[in-house]
């Protein structure tokens, strides 16, 4: 019997733990796939195929290791952590440099006619030149809507490093936008 979509995440996790219920796990995947794939796409600079491979690998790792889920974090936060580790591991396999001071790859150009497209453009411009560490901190705290503590858990780095990366990233973005003459670069918080 398929579990009802009304079940809470924790109920579904309990079914997976007790009965290896694949349908319950499928429901968890269905619930979290959009958020997770979107997050991983940001990590991969918009490479959708690579991102989906990592997202798939993330869910399979979650299935294999669900016994280690301790309910200390939200299930989605736990998934982000697995996804981040899987992404790092894949990047290492591809022999790409993943140093903290390396720069993010250029995001793939995406045609977008929504009202947010100009915001998007400004933001892409501002995010050019961020280090991977800074980019990851911004992704977790803003796009995944995590607290600094949760971001530190996901990224496996100290809380202070997350805060520093956020501050540095914002400073760089501010300077970048000011250089382009954008209003966003002006009037920073005192």
């Amino acid at each position: 019997m398929n579990p009802s979509p009304g079940f809470a995440d924790n109920d579904l996790i309990a079914r997976v733990l007790l009965k290896d219920d694949r349908n319950a796990f499928g429901e968890l995947v269905r619930r979290h796939q959009s958020q997770l794939r979107s997050s991983v796409r940001r990590m991969t600079g918009g490479n959708e195929v690579f991102a989906d491979d990592i997202a798939q690998e993330t869910f399979i790792l979650a299935w294999k290791n669900i016994k280690s889920f301790r309910y200390e974090a939200k299930f989605s936060t736990w998934l982000y952590r697995i996804a981040f580790n899987a992404w790092q591991s894949e990047v290492r396999k591809k022999h790409e440099v993943l140093m903290d001071d390396s720069l993010m790859p250029e995001p793939e150009a995406v045609e977008c006619d929504t009202a947010a497209s100009s915001v998007r453009r400004d933001l892409d411009r501002a995010m050019e030149g961020l280090t991977i560490g800074e980019h990851n901190a911004i992704t977790q705290c803003y796009y995944n809507d995590l607290s600094h503590e949760e971001a530190a858990y996901v990224l496996g780095i100290p809380l202070g490093t997350v805060k520093t990366n956020i501050l540095k990233a914002k400073e760089k973005m501010r300077a970048k936008l000011a250089a382009y003459g954008s209003d966003y670069g002006q009037g920073a918080a005192a």
Binding site: S38, V119, L123, A126, D145, R174, Y184, Q186, G187
Partner: peptide
């Protein structure tokens, strides 16, 4: 108001 903060929040909202 931190304009960068607002910009990021707006984009994150649109993204979600």
């Amino acid at each position: 108001i931190d304009p960068i903060d607002e910009l990021l929040k707006a984009d994150a909202r649109a993204n979600r």
